[in-house]
Computed example of a mutant assay.
Amino acid sequence: MTDRQRARYEELGENLEVVERRIADACAAAGRERSEVTLIVVTKTYPAEDSALLAGLGVTDVAENRDQDAAPKADLCVDLPLTWHFVGQLQTNKVRSVLRYADTVHSVDRDRLVESLSAAVVRDGRAPLGCLVQVALDKEHGEGGHRAGVAPEDVLALADKIAGAPGLRLDGVMTVAPLAGPLAGDPAASFARLMEIASAVRAVHPAATMVSAGMSGDLEQAIAAGATHVRIGTAVLGVRSPLR
């Protein structure tokens, strides 16, 4: 390991310690076990070298949002014990590439994507793909919405479609706290609403227990609401010059 790599390793380790303390404290405040929350480190725009260093620090789950960056990075890290999550908007022409490395797609938001994912999984004969319905809380009751995802009232229909699609596994729901609408600026209320939606999905699909919510600035509110997975980027990787 070079001096630069060692310095980066130590920086990432220190940042991870801070994030781990935040997660542990949030779990304790919510009366939850630390083991109930999985940390996903969002490595988008950062090099494969960082992913390798994170694996050395004990990180098991990483996320990407652009296939053109993720695919070569995953290839370089193929021998590392990492589980890959895809969290960005997914175009159907990128489906087969994403299926080469992703274990879970958090951003399923339309019927056509479900159909494309299912067909590709069946064609490739790979293990079932975990899918989350991306919920756009700012689209509720006909609001325009700025976030990708489906309106809350459409979640169950899309969840049913995923659950019935060959090769796909309905794991749960995902959201990002909205920038517009009545819940804007209120992550606690946003995540509480997501949990209502998640409960409605679980009532029909009991195995869909995953709730992906919370990022660097609002992980505490997400955990308080009941999130099972938090997606943390800046708080671990820091604010620095990305790949481009």
Rank of each mutant, 00 (worst) to 15 (best):
A157V: 09
A208C: 04
P206V: 03
V42S: 11
R6P: 01
V176Y: 06
V239H: 01
G181D: 12
L57S: 07
A30P: 00
I232R: 14
S118I: 10
G149F: 00
F191R: 14
P81H: 09
L90T: 06
R240P: 04
G238R: 00
E49H: 03
L137R: 14
C77K: 05
V108R: 01
G217H: 11
E33H: 08
A120W: 02
E49F: 01
H141N: 15
A200F: 03
A200G: 07
T104E: 14
Y9F: 12
V108F: 10
G31A: 09
A188P: 11
K44Y: 02
S107C: 11
E143F: 07
L57W: 00
A120H: 10
T60N: 03
V201H: 08
S116W: 00
A163I: 02
Q68N: 12
A120Y: 03
L137W: 13
T175G: 04
A200T: 12
G88R: 02
R6T: 10
R231D: 02
E10I: 05
Y46P: 01
L16P: 06
R126I: 11
R231F: 05
A127D: 15
Y46R: 15
L129P: 12
A163P: 03
P206N: 04
G185C: 08
D111C: 06
L219A: 07
G145D: 07
S35R: 14
A119V: 07
A127F: 04
E220H: 06
D124G: 10
T43Y: 00
A207G: 07
L237G: 02
V176H: 05
V133F: 06
V176Q: 13
D138T: 09
L137P: 03
V201C: 10
V41A: 11
R126Y: 00
F191D: 09
R22Q: 12
D3Y: 02
L156N: 04
A189S: 15
L194T: 07
L53M: 15
R34Y: 03
G130C: 08
P81S: 04
T38I: 08
I162S: 04
A188S: 15
V108P: 08
Q68S: 14
Y9T: 04
G142I: 14
V150Q: 06
Y101Q: 09
Y101I: 09
I232G: 09
D186R: 15
D50L: 12
C27H: 11
H146D: 11
